[in-house]
Design a protein around this nucleic acid. Structure first.
Lengths: 115, 115, 115, 115
DNA sequence: GTGGTCTAGACCACG
DNA sequence: GTGGTCTAGACCACC
């Protein structure tokens, strides 16, 4: 896996994991720390940090001596959090910038259709 | 001035300055580093970094011993840069997230109308 | 059986077993490892560890090929051990925290009476 | 500083810091990570972990590029948290064990007076 | 100067 | 086998 420079690696891994949960690629158990570290060519500590972060968010939970598992309401939690941020922050910024640049929604539709 | 936690302070100041240039609040000269630092309650080094950044973008230029000034084509530069980022990065991410959250443009119009 | 997060599971099981010995629910023989593991929905290794721990404390002893049994002086041992810990460690910590929180014994009596 | 083996070092440091906040030894700023690491003869990462933990508890907060500071309501937060745990968990366990061991509050008063 | 992150490698408790 | 913790040391962004 390749990582952007701007964002912390452990957060990028967190996003990746959330994607796998949202797409139901991972339904119950998530890979062992060392396993994921190998796959992503990253230090195990980094993955451990990701897991600790996701656990603090309530997205995954640990079963001691066994491993980490997807929380039952993980998808709902992830979506709800993202929705809040999107509506409270992203959308207003988006429309503000659109107006500032003298663009309309119709322009954007065209642009997104071209791609 | 209050700052978000996520973004670097010097970048948030840069955005603020660009706003002042776009709205033509500042047409020629830009405040001295120390002055702005006092106003924003920020370390002068931080403002200095902002100015260095804006100068590297060609938005402002220094006149040694005198101060910083808005570049002649500053507005065009800012808009062009923002437009590129907006179309290449912001818009695609925006529509992707919108779809992921099961929202439509009509939903967003409603939301933005309510506010 | 549900377990606290802080304490190791095998120690929580040990406490549970000690309770059963103190209340004379178990007088002679102790359940087989697998049996208890099933009842507690726990890995047999964990119960084995508990038994090894209790044996090292002299609370139970193994009869090879037969099973585990309560030691003759088990109750006395458990009580003596707990008493020592209680007086040497628990009580001082308790009064220290009570003072720190600005509480008195009378306050606690009230609280414990309410429940 | 010497550490117990049972508890994680970073948590023991956290308790120590809370003591210093409660006794108002530290009122505003708390020492730099590297400074405390030197004093406690511990790796800076360990202290960093402590600070991250305390920040997540709302006991301290960061001022970027400057350092960590005691939160305004830190004392209240610490005391309230400890009080809850004490009353909900410690006190019941305490009285239960006291009864089990056949002790009375008067006995404990004597014991604590002797020391 | 400050903290944040990451790697490498190790040891340990636990299940 | 699992994760949790810790050290050593490094680089970086930021103020």
């Amino acid at each position: 896996m390749e990582f952007q420079e701007q964002k912390a690696i452990y957060l990028q891994i967190a996003e990746r994991i959330e994607e796998n949960i949202l797409t139901q690629k991972w339904i119950e158990r998530i890979p062992a720390i060392r396993e994921l570290a190998l796959e992503f060519k990253v230090n195990p500590n980094t993955v451990a940090r990701t897991y600790a972060y996701l656990e603090s968010q309530g997205v995954i939970h640990i079963q001691r001596g066994v491993g980490y598992f997807v929380a039952k309401d993980a998808i709902a939690k992830i979506l709800s959090l993202r929705k809040t941020i999107f509506i409270e922050k992203t959308v207003p910024e988006f429309f503000k910038m659109m107006t500032l640049l003298g663009l309309t929604l119709d322009d954007l539709k065209e642009i997104s259709d071209e791609k």
